[in-house]
């Protein structure tokens, strides 16, 4: 479990993290989402014990990072931003150092070592110097280091940054597989990642928590939520009729590809009515879709609000 309590961090006059109160429970993958410079990494650095909070505190598995830093760190696996590691060491030496420095029981630790190496597909580069590895491999070494001690809490700062689509997929599978009993906090600015991984999203901007909800709840905030969009031949004809359907608030036509989007009034299901209308019009529909809502739009809406405004 990770809890932060009015966690605040100032750099001179700049407040990087502003009274952040957050809670992540076992079994949850919480995505810390925000534009660059929102304070995601600073918040994580405080939880990891690298930075001291200006005020407030954080707890990892109930251990206060200010009062019991070592116990908190023992419960935590952390991948810092950019996955730093000692470039002159080989992968084996580096992971070996991590096992030793954490003072792990050797038998169990080395069984785990082999398992982690296999899971992250690092067997072939074990004897290679980390400095010579590609960005993707280096990130995997960083991930290996973070899960080596089988921590109950995992905190990953942009875990898939710099990976190719296949590697992204395998890292997501790994996180997914680990999620069941663990608390996982990841930071990202990739919205697809939120969809793929997270069951909760905390959006922060300017150091402030602006939203804390499930991805579905966030999508429901989008004006696209429940909207029906379709492409059809000669759809210009039906525009006014669509607008006359009860429950429809607005009809938009994309000037480029002619795709029509029908927006509902809040909470009104309109799919059936729209379909019925289209059928009676005898239009040739090439594709029709019920929109879940667009996270990118909600994200933009939340994070570009003037300061102090709350979504």
């Amino acid at each position: 479990m990770i809890e932060t309590e009015r966690l605040t961090r100032c750099y001179g006059p700049l407040t990087a993290v502003d009274s952040l109160t957050l809670r992540a429970e076992p079994g949850q993958v919480v995505g810390l989402l925000g534009p660059n410079g929102a304070g995601k990494s600073t918040a994580m650095r405080m939880i990891a014990g690298f930075l001291t909070p200006t005020s407030g505190t954080a707890r990892v598995c109930g251990h206060d990072v200010r009062k019991e830093p070592l116990a908190a760190k023992r419960a935590l696996g952390y991948l810092p931003e950019g996955a730093p590691s000692y470039g002159e060491m080989t992968v084996r030496e580096f992971l070996d150092f991590m096992v030793r420095v954490r003072g792990l029981d050797s038998d169990v630790a080395y069984r785990r070592f082999d398992e982690v190496v296999m899971r992250l597909e690092l067997e072939e580069v074990l004897e290679q110097t980390i400095g010579t590895l590609s960005k993707g491999l280096r990130r995997r070494v960083g991930l290996a280091q973070a899960i080596l001690h089988d921590p109950p809490v995992l905190m990953l700062d942009e875990p898939t940054d710099g990976l190719d689509p296949n590697q992204k997929h395998s890292v997501r599978m790994l996180i997914d597989a680990m999620a069941r009993e663990r608390t996982i906090l990841i930071s990202t600015h990739l919205l697809e990642e939120v969809h793929a991984l997270c069951n909760r999203v905390a959006i922060i901007a300017n150091g402030k928590l602006l939203a804390d909800a499930t991805p579905a709840e966030l999508e429901a905030r989008s004006r696209y939520h429940g909207a029906v969009s379709f492409s059809a031949q000669g759809s210009g004809v039906s525009r006014e009729m669509l607008a006359r359907i009860p429950g429809v608030s607005m009809v938009e036509v994309d000037p480029l590809d002619g795709r029509v989007t029908v927006f509902p009034k809040p909470g009104q299901p309109i799919l059936e009515d729209v379909q019925t209308l289209l059928r009676t019009q005898n239009l040739e529909i090439s594709e029709i879709q019920l929109e879940r809502g667009r996270l990118d739009e909600v994200f933009r809406q939340i994070t570009t609000l003037p300061r102090g405004g709350h979504a």
Binding site: R45, A48, G49, F50, L70, A71, K73, R74, L76, Y78, P80, E81, G82, P84, S85, Y86, M98, V101, R102, G103, Q145
Partner: peptide, 11 residues
Amino acid sequence: GTLELLFSLPV
């Protein structure tokens, strides 16, 4: 940047 890694270890 390895300082961050070192200080996130239980040391």
